[in-house]
């Protein structure tokens, strides 16, 4: 099971809390998913915040507040400070958005915000790309977890750059790695786990499914299967066939 900043989590599934048809379905989806961590956010208080707080407290999972919607290091740092007080955790999913259409991170502001927050005692979970140099900078800034995207947030496209994600796993064998964003199907999540990723963070794939509770269960199964496959050391791929049935002893007919 994944270990983040010295804390072992019971599940490799981290689940978002946004976009569910109802609070009841959100709670049921969490129960079926077995997720150990819920992502949450901060928004201007407009009446619903206190009820939502009660709901997430009832889930019995760890909380990972995000800085979603921030476009600069300064905004993200202030948001993280506010989140630490409200959610009573020093964990922060650091998002600094750089592009309106793809919601891809502004990696320059991201590294700067990570440096400031890590030196202030935050345990930073950076939403990043699979760029090896950026990831190296994030580790140097004090991050002990990396969360590369699979595909743009909410797209459901899966793993856009499996080769890059595999290279990242190979480059940082001892760093907990989470694929965050872009997962649409259980097979996407399983594929990332089969590469040796430690966890999957997803939201829309469950919340926007026709039956979110059933999809939460499917994701959990896929992630367990993918993890088991990685631990079982998958066979090497080849471009040509290798007969599986013994050739020796074949009859001449």
């Amino acid at each position: 099971m994944p270990v983040f900043y010295g804390t072992e989590i019971d599940s490799s599934l981290m689940l978002g809390t946004a976009g569910y048809p109802s609070p009841r379905i959100l709670a049921d989806a969490f129960a079926r998913s077995g997720a150990g961590i819920a992502t949450v956010s901060l928004r201007r208080e407009a009446g619903g915040g206190q009820d939502f707080w009660a709901l997430i407290r009832s889930l019995g999972v760890g909380l990972l507040p995000n800085t979603a919607g921030c476009h600069s290091a300064r905004e993200a740092v202030t948001t993280a400070q506010m989140a630490r007080e409200v959610f009573a955790t020093d964990w922060i999913k650091l998002e600094v958005i750089g592009h309106a259409d793809t919601l891809q991170p502004d990696v320059f502001e991201l590294v700067e915000a990570a440096r400031i927050l890590a030196s202030d005692g935050f345990k930073v979970f950076p939403y990043c790309t699979e760029d090896l140099t950026v990831c190296d900078r994030l580790l140097a800034a004090g991050c002990q977890v990396l969360m590369p995207w699979g595909a743009p947030i909410g797209s459901g496209l899966g793993l856009n750059n499996p080769h890059g994600l595999r290279a990242l796993r190979a480059a940082f064998p001892d760093v907990p790695l989470v694929v965050d964003a872009g997962i649409g199907l259980p097979s996407h999540a399983a594929a990332a786990m089969e590469m040796g990723y430690d966890a999957i963070l997803l939201n829309s794939a469950v919340a926007r499914a026709g039956d979110p509770v059933a999809m939460a269960a499917a994701m959990a199964d896929a992630i367990r299967a993918g993890r088991a496959a990685w631990l079982a050391d998958p066979m090497e791929r080849t471009d040509m066939a290798i007969p599986s049935t013994p050739v020796i002893g074949r009859a001449f007919l």
């Binding site: 809390t17 946004a18 976009g19 992502t39 901060l42 928004r43 206190q50």
Partner: peptide, 27 residues
């Protein structure tokens, strides 16, 4: 950011902008 413990002693001036944020759904 202004921590909760400092709100009582944080003075306001004309034109100040306050943000008051609450827990919300997030991904």
């Amino acid at each position: 950011f202004v921590p909760a413990a400092l709100r009582e002693t944080t003075p306001l001036r004309d034109g100040d902008a306050i943000e008051a944020l609450a827990p919300m759904q997030g991904g």
